[in-house]
């Protein structure tokens, strides 16, 4: 456990607050009727770009593909002036070194998935080694997965201890804990897993690996944001949030951003505290930004596919 958390009383995770699914759906629907227009839309879209973890997590990833993605991370669209960079690139541990070199001294961070991503089906020693390897290769951030099987069978202490062990292995790297909400099924479980992760030392909580559907629905993200808010109110510690998987349009991303504003407030509207895990979102946002400048939509061929 990290030093900042040593004085915090760990709650009994069997009794986390209950969630009413219908109520959450209504709340999210209200946010989705909000109309984001004009300058606020452009400002919001630039924030979205700056919060993206540009991701490639495939078995067939090559050093060339990762290098190209790293270039794009810093040069999203030359035709749009003052375009921000993304927040980070997210790759497998074997690609961390390549990404780190490609990004050089830029502000773009390197995030690495670890702990036998995406299933997490490996012994703890392997997960720790996986994490340490990624950190040694230069990863600034570690995206771990929780042991969903253990969680679903009620072994909350196991899940807690595992997260705490990985946090220790991370050293200075920031730890994002992936709950894989698509496998947790209920919002009550999402809330419970969020609390376990935060109390065990997560710097970020993250919805999904992107390999399982459904992934980052607004309902799930809302429940996690409220868990972060309650944790902050109890401890004074800010935790980051990363919805990942399924957010591919600027409209959905903007509504996510507005949801952060209406739950956690403006302090979280910064890529230190909020990220989008996405591969195709950036181009849709760029297309909208170009449209706001030129008045017309351009075809997908005008936006690079790295």
């Amino acid at each position: 456990m990290s030093t900042k958390q040593k004085d915090i009383q760990i709650p009994d995770f069997r009794f986390t607050p209950t969630i009413d699914k219908v109520g959450v759906e209504e709340r999210v629907a209200r946010i989705q009727t909000r109309s984001i227009k004009g300058e606020s839309k452009i400002q919001g879209m630039k924030m979205v770009l700056n919060m993206i973890d540009l991701t490639t997590l495939e078995g067939k990833d090559t050093p060339g593909k990762v290098k190209q993605m790293c270039y794009k991370a810093q040069h999203l669209h030359e035709a749009y002036p003052d375009c921000p960079t993304v927040a980070a690139v997210c790759v497998y541990p074997s690609m961390v070194k390549i990404a780190k070199e490609a990004l050089g001294n830029s502000n773009v961070k390197v995030a690495s998935v670890s702990t036998a991503f995406p299933s997490g089906q490996a012994p703890r020693e392997v997960k720790i080694m996986d994490t340490k390897f990624a950190v040694e290769q230069g990863a600034d951030e570690i995206d771990m997965v929780i042991s969903r099987g253990k969680f679903l069978s009620g072994e909350y202490n196991f899940v807690f201890d595992e997260i705490a062990a990985i946090k220790e292995a991370c050293g200075k790297a920031r730890l994002k804990v992936i709950l894989e909400t698509g496998e947790l099924v209920t919002l009550d479980n999402v809330r419970k897993a969020s609390e376990i992760a935060m109390y065990a030392g997560a710097d970020f909580i993250k919805t999904s690996t992107g390999k399982i559907q459904p992934a980052a629905t607004m309902q799930v993200t809302y429940v996690m944001l409220m868990a972060i808010k309650d944790y902050f109110n109890k401890t004074g510690i800010m935790i980051g949030m990363k919805p990942a998987g399924g957010i591919s349009t600027s409209k959905l991303a903007l509504h996510n951003l507005l949801m952060v504003k209406e739950t956690l407030g403006e302090n979280w509207l910064d890529n230190h505290w909020f990220r989008f895990g996405a591969s195709s979102l950036a181009n849709d946002v760029l297309m909208q930004l170009m449209k706001s400048k030129t008045g017309v939509y351009q075809s997908g061929d005008y936006f690079s596919l790295d």
């Binding site: 109309s35 984001i36 227009k37 606020s40 919001g44 924030m47 403006e266 302090n267 509207l269 910064d270």
Partner: peptide, 15 residues
């Protein structure tokens, strides 16, 4: 840790 360059993001009127 606290790197809050808190951005003001207010919605434009949408009449």
């Amino acid at each position: 840790m606290n790197k809050n360059q808190s951005t003001k993001w207010n919605l434009d009127p949408a009449p």
